[in-house]
């Protein structure tokens, strides 16, 4: 299996002497569905930012599809859902406009939308179940529906890797359940590599193939059924001495 992500001996601090992450080693193969969990402040968001190339490791190597993550060329599209995704600007942006933003790629910055773009945008909206409100301003929709619009935006890029940061924050239980099912479908049907970062596993625990627990370093990496009972609440994760 070729690798989507490789972190080797990665350490990171936001200031000298600080160790948010220490000696992290992680290999994510293409097509895997992985949950990255851990307590708040444990470094999981930093780990996600490093693997996406938004931060550079202080020590060690971070590769994204074989390229240094911070200089990634964008050859294989990436999808990213930020925590509490909200649309920027004050204009009444529609679902379709948000999703269409996912079709703007590094090699296609200049120019207008193609018919292919239109079709991929419509397909992505359909897939997340927002076809009926495709032309409604996003701000008129519920939090769960807005989140789905941003997932559709990520999908419209036809991502090889989809990363979701705390996607359950501020979303009701029903929406969390349907999000987990949607991700499982995407993984099953399209084979998208998915990294689900959260302080809790929530509904995805039954769908992921692998769980990675982070508390400054990786303290567990394996299948959900191998996870020791007390660690099902990641707040209890402790660094192995």
């Amino acid at each position: 299996m070729s690798l989507a992500v490789l972190l080797a001996g990665v350490s990171f601090g936001y200031r000298p002497g600080q160790r948010v992450l220490e000696d992290v080693n992680l290999r994510l193969g293409e097509g895997e569905f992985v949950a990255v969990a851990g307590p708040n402040g444990g470094g999981k968001t930093t780990l996600m930012r490093i693997l996406l190339g938004l931060e550079r490791p202080t020590a060690g190597t971070a590769l994204l599809f074989g390229e240094p993550a911070h200089r990634y060329s964008g050859g294989r599209p990436l999808g990213y859902l930020a925590q509490r995704s909200v649309v920027g600007g004050d204009a009444p942006t529609t679902v379709r406009e948000v999703v269409a933003a996912g079709r703007v790629m590094p090699r296609r910055i200049v120019g207008r939308r193609t018919p292919d773009d239109g079709q991929l945008v419509a397909d992505a909206i359909e897939r997340v179940g927002l076809a009926a409100v495709a032309d409604a301003p996003l701000r008129t929709l519920s939090g769960g529906m807005q989140q789905r619009a941003f997932i559709a935006k990520a999908l419209a890029a036809r991502p090889a890797l989809l990363v979701l940061d705390e996607p359950t924050t501020g979303v009701d239980a029903e929406s969390q359940e349907s999000l987990a099912e949607l991700l499982a479908d995407l993984h099953g049907e399209l084979g998208v590599t998915i990294v689900y970062v959260s302080h809790e596993f929530g509904a995805v625990e039954h769908h992921v193939q692998r769980i990675v627990l982070v508390r400054r370093t990786i303290v567990f990496d394996g299948a959900p059924h191998d996870l020791p009972g007390m660690w099902h609440d990641p707040g209890h994760v402790h660094v192995r001495e």
Partner: peptide
């Protein structure tokens, strides 16, 4: 619409 998303996409 989504500056961080655009950054990740490599824009």
């Amino acid at each position: 619409i989504d500056e961080e998303g655009a950054r990740v996409a490599g824009l």
